[in-house]
C-alpha cells in the first residue's frame, strides 16, 4: 500500500526541501522504496540537497508531456538503493504541468513505490495546486515565527478546502535557549495556535547545513535534527515515538549527556 505525501509550508525558506530529502533518505534507509519528487518547476532544488545534480537527464515536465518514459527520468541514489529522485525542470514554469497530469503521475508512481514524497513550491498558486492534487497526506512545515505560522495556517485552510484532511505539522528550527528565556514560541504555543496534529519538532541544527553542503542527508553522527527526522519516519510508518524534550541539553552536563544519548 503506497502513500503520496506532500510537504508544504506556504512560506519559503522554512525547510521543505531539507525535510523531503531527510525523510526520503530516512525511509529508504528503513528499507522502504521511496521516490522524492521536486514539483517546484523553474526553481529546481531537491537535486542539489541530495547531491544528485550532476545526474539529471530528463525531468518531471518531460515525463508529463510524454517526451520520455517515467523510468528514464528517475534518478537512482547509489548510496541508498531504495531512494529515487524525480527532478523538476529548470527551464519551464509552473503552467507546464496541470493538476490532472500530477494525479496521473502520482498514480503511476504508486505502482512502483511505497512512499512518494512531493516537495511543494512556496506560495499558494498553481505550483501548490499541482503538488497537492495527487496527495493522500500533507506535512506542513513551519518555524516558530509569526510569518511562517500565519502562512502555515493559510495553507492548512487551503488543504482542507481541497479535501486533504490528513494534515501533520513539523515545527522546524526550534531554539531551546530562546524558548527557555521566553523569546521564541514553544511547540505547545504553535500547536495551540494552529490546532493541528504534530508529527515532528526539529531543533535548529548546524549539522543540517553541513549535510546540505555535502549533498548528503543523514551523513553526520551526532545530529539531534537527524535523530528527530528518523523519528518522523518511524511515525509515518505507524510507530508511536515520543517527542523529544526540546529543553534538554541545558548546561554542560546536559549537553554531554545529549551527545551520548541514543
Amino acid at each position: 500500500m503506497s502513500e503520496v505525501i506532500v510537504i508544504t509550508s506556504g512560506k519559503g525558506g522554512v525547510g521543505k526541501t531539507t525535510t523531503v530529502a531527510n525523510i526520503g533518505t530516512g525511509l529508504a534507509m528503513m528499507g522502504k522504496k521511496v521516490v522524492v519528487v521536486d514539483t517546484d518547476i523553474g526553481l529546481r532544488n531537491l537535486d542539489v540537497v541530495l547531491g544528485l545534480e550532476n545526474r539529471i537527464v530528463y525531468n518531471l515536465v518531460d515525463v508529463v508531456s510524454g517526451s520520455c518514459r517515467l523510468r528514464q527520468a528517475l534518478i537512482k541514489d547509489k548510496r541508498h538503493p531504495e531512494l529515487y529522485l524525480l527532478p523538476s525542470a529548470q527551464t519551464k514554469d509552473k503552467s507546464a504541468v496541470s493538476p490532472e497530469q500530477m494525479i496521473k503521475l502520482t498514480d503511476e508512481l504508486r505502482e512502483e513505490f511505497d512512499f512518494i514524497l512531493l516537495d511543494c513550491p512556496a506560495g499558494i498558486e498553481q505550483g501548490f495546486r499541482n503538488a497537492i492534487a495527487g496527495a493522500d497526506k500533507a506535512l506542513v512545515v513551519t518555524t516558530p515565527e509569526v510569518s511562517a505560522i500565519r502562512d502555515a495556517d493559510r495553507i492548512i485552510g487551503l488543504l482542507e478546502a481541497n479535501d486533504l484532511r490528513d494534515i501533520h505539522l513539523i515545527i522546524n528550527r526550534l531554539r531551546p535557549d530562546m524558548i527557555l528565556r521566553g523569546d521564541m514560541m514553544s511547540v505547545d504555543d504553535v500547536i495551540e495556535i494552529l490546532a493541528v496534529n504534530l508529527i515532528g519538532t526539529l531543533p535548529d541544527d548546524e549539522q543540517i547545513v553541513i549535510a546540505t553542503n555535502q549533498g548528503e542527508p543523514f551523513s553526520s553522527k551526532n545530529s539531534r535534527a537527524e535523530e528527530e527526522y528518523r523519528n518522523i519516519c518511524k511515525r509515518l510508518l505507524g510507530e508511536d515515538v515520543p517527542f523529544m524534550d526540546i529543553r534538554q541539553k541545558k548546561g554542560v552536563f546536559g549537553r554531554l549527556g545529549g551527545l551520548f544519548r541514543k
Binding site: V146, I149, R150, D153, G182, D183, D189, I193
Partner: peptide, 22 residues
C-alpha cells in the same frame, strides 16, 4: 517580566489574527 517577553506577544498576536483570518 514573563508577559513582556516577545514569545508571549507573538502568541497573542497570532491567536487574534488567525481567528479573524479564518
Amino acid at each position: 517580566i514573563v508577559k513582556k517577553r516577545s514569545a508571549g506577544y507573538a502568541r497573542e498576536r497570532m491567536k487574534l489574527l488567525l481567528v479573524s483570518e479564518r
